[in-house]
Amino acid sequence: MLRRHHDMGGLEAGPVDPFGPGAEHDYAPWEKKVDAILRLVSDQKRRIMTVDELRRGIEELGPGVYDELSYYERWIASVTNNLIEKGVIDIDELGRRMAAVTEAWPAGGVTEAEPKTGGEST
């Protein structure tokens, strides 16, 4: 593949939706939090990661995931991978904390995020 999937200038695509609900909506608090976290860890004081690393991480999600995830889902996936790679957070504490956060959430977690059974194990 010469063209990478995120590099979409000129490809055929459907009509733009200038007046759809996403044209004027406010961002959800968690989406703004993703934005804020990225800005803080990439600021001059911390310089833990760059926006270039954010973009690389998003591109490396691969074509399937890239299209499946929403904009800020891609961002937090990339930010988190970068923070793990750099040793700022580790997988074990992240997994435990995500479980705790979900446990404490009044409406619980989305069930699709639970491990799927019956898949081939590797």
Binding site: L2, R4, G9, R56
Partner: peptide, 12 residues
């Protein structure tokens, strides 16, 4: 050129 990694030069 078509390197596999992160570049900022669009394909088109």
């Amino acid at each position: 050129a078509f390197p596999p990694g992160h570049v900022r030069t669009p394909f088109f």
